[in-house]
Structures are given as structure tokens and as C-alpha cells.
Computed example of a mutant assay.
Amino acid sequence: MTTSALRLGISRCLLGEQVRFDGGHKRDQFLTDVLGRYVEWVPVCPEVEAGLGTPREAMRLVGDPQRPRLVSIKSGQDHTRALEVVTDRRLVDLEAVDLSGFVFKKDSPSCGVERVRTYNEHGMPNRKGVGLFARAFVGRFPLIPVEEEGRLSDPLLRENFIERVFCYRRWQDLIHVGVTRQAVVRFHTIHKYLLLAHSAQYYRQLGRLVAQVHEYRPKDLALRYGELFMQALAVRATVRKHVNVLQHILGHFKDRLDAQEKAELLGVIADYHQGLTPLIVPLTLIKHYVQVFDVEYIRDQVYLNPHPKELMLRNHV
């Protein structure tokens, strides 16, 4: 799937390390036992690394949700500066290890990505906050896919995140070996149907960019393409968009199918459209015919195999 190590940052408590404020952990079995077979975890706990100890007094965000302070609930001690110092240092370290994604602990005042409780001067909470470390990470690495472990229990969000991780790794590999205009065109070509499954608008926009490759210096082209590419994949794929892609792919070899074969394939696509079967069913049949008829253009499409099949991310209805 990739040519180099697939490293993901992760909140240490999700690996089962006892670094929570109460001395406990929040081990996530999918992350440790399933996804962990395909990635190299880079664990981070900004609170422990800031010297706050385990166990420690519970903390929360207070003040302006855009610039909150990290304060101990009982003592009122302000730990904002300590966390900012370790965050600055940690981000430099993380840049050096070339991460392809990050899984954060939800609701954490340091690591929560969204809807983190932030308390005003009257002690009233709202759900507009972002953990201090998570906010800094996203600001420093805006293209790196991030997600909270709680949201990964949703099959669609899980597939989207892991798909983006593998795609970002492929993009990183392209950058590392040296960008050429031809390499960007090739990269775009093999990702066309995956892009179309996410956003027709970005698909067209990226197509126009690739059509104008000679108007850009390779480095500028790569930066612009990578930004749009990751934005496109952040748009959620839907059943309707998948059906559209499946029908496009079918168009490359439908004339080679006999009436029974064509009816069978159209039938499984219709069943998927109606929610009767998972995406893996029509995809498996399509991949069979792509191999039988040796349809090179389709065989090379990342859409058919965007992540390891063992993760079974396309087996949900």
C-alpha cells in the first residue's frame, strides 16, 4: 500500500497506558489490535510530558473558546503555559517523524479535537472548545488527517479517516521521491475514481489543475494539488456517489459482458444502492471482471483497494 512506514500519532491513554488524570487508561481495542497491525504508533500525552504527573488533579478549559486556559478544577492552578511549552517542543519532534495521521482522545482539554467543554467566568460550560495540544497540532499540520477515537466507532467515519491516512501516506511518498509534473499527473490518474466518490466538485477542480501542470513549477503544483486532494477526501463519500463511480467503472467493460453477467452486476449495484448489501459485494464482482478483461486503467485505480482488505472497512451496509 505504501513505500515507507505508516506512522500515526495517538493519545497515549488509547494504547492502554495509565496516564489519565485518575491513573487509568482508555485502551481502544480497534486501534491497538486491528489498526495497530498496519501502523506504527507514536504515542503522546501532553499533560504528562508537561510534568503534571499521574494521577493529577482534573483540569478543564476556561475562558474564551478560541484562546482558553487550562486550569485545575479544585485548586484553580493555571497550567496553560506549561502545556504550551511542551506542545511547541513536541510539534518539532513530530514533524521529524513524518506522521500520516493522528488519533486523539475525545473530550480531553488537551487532546479533544472538537466539542470540548469550555467554562465561562460563571462556571457555565459550552461545547465550542478544542484541546490545547490538538488545536496547535492541526494549526501546524493542517493536511494531516486527525480523528477522535469516539468517532471511529462509526463505520463511515472510520473508513473515511483510514482512507485519508493511506492516501496522505502515498502523497508523502510522492513528495519524498521528488516531485515532477508527470508524477503528479500519474498520482491524479490513479486516484480519479476515489476522488469522484468523495466530491465531483473537487474532482473537476483537480482535473483542471492537472490539465494546467505546465503553468506551475513542480513544487508549487505539488503544494496546491496536495491541499486540494486532502480537502476532497475530507468530504464524506455517500452511497449515491459510490453508485455513480461503480457505473462509471462498469462502462469500461460492459460491452464485454453477456446479458446474464451484465444483469448480475447491475443487480448487485442496485442492491447496494438500496442498502441490501455492503459496498464490498459489487466491488468484488467488478474487480473480478477487471482482472478477467485486463482493464489496465481501472486495475490501477486506488478506489478498488484504498486500504488493506483485512480491515474490512467496506463490509458495512
Rank of each mutant, 00 (worst) to 15 (best):
V103H: 02
V103Q: 04
V103K: 04
F104W: 01
F104H: 05
K105C: 11
K105S: 06
K105D: 09
K105Q: 10
K106C: 10
K106F: 00
D107S: 15
S108G: 11
P109I: 02
P109W: 04
G112H: 01
V113H: 03
E114S: 11
E114P: 04
E114T: 09
R115G: 06
R115E: 11
V116T: 01
V116H: 00
N120P: 09
H122Q: 15
M124G: 02
N126D: 15
N126Y: 04
R127P: 03
K128G: 12
K128I: 08
G129F: 00
G129M: 09
V130C: 08
V130T: 13
V130Y: 01
G131L: 09
G131C: 05
F133W: 05
A134N: 05
A134W: 01
R135E: 08
R135T: 04
R135L: 13
A136F: 00
F137L: 14
F137G: 03
G139D: 13
R140S: 12
P142D: 09
L143N: 10
P145F: 00
V146R: 04
E147R: 00
E147Q: 12
E148C: 07
E149V: 03
E149T: 02
E149Y: 06
R151V: 11
R151L: 14
R151F: 07
L152T: 07
D154C: 07
D154Y: 00
P155A: 07
P155K: 07
L156Y: 10
L157V: 07
L157H: 10
L157E: 14
R158E: 06
E159H: 10
E159V: 07
E159L: 03
E159I: 08
E159C: 06
N160T: 14
E163D: 08
R164K: 04
R164P: 12
F166G: 02
C167V: 09
C167M: 06
Y168G: 07
Y168I: 04
Y168T: 05
R169Y: 05
R169M: 02
W171M: 10
Q172N: 13
D173Y: 03
D173I: 04
I175A: 12
H176A: 15
V179R: 08
V179K: 06
V179G: 12
T180L: 03
Q182R: 14
A183F: 05
V184S: 06
R186L: 11
R186K: 12
R186H: 12
I190H: 08
I190T: 09
I190V: 11
K192P: 01
L194H: 00
L195Y: 00
L196D: 04
A197K: 03
A197D: 07
A197W: 01
A197M: 02
Y202H: 13
Q205E: 15
L206E: 06
R208P: 04
R208T: 14
L209Q: 04
L209R: 05
A211Q: 12
Q212R: 12
Q212K: 14
V213N: 12
E215R: 13
E215N: 10
R217T: 14
D220Y: 06
L221I: 11
L221E: 08
L221P: 07
L221D: 13
L223T: 15
L223M: 14
Y225H: 05
Y225M: 11
E227R: 13
L228Q: 15
M230Q: 10
M230Y: 03
Q231P: 03
Q231Y: 10
L233F: 09
A234L: 11
A234T: 11
R236Y: 06
A237E: 06
A237Y: 10
T238F: 00
V239M: 03
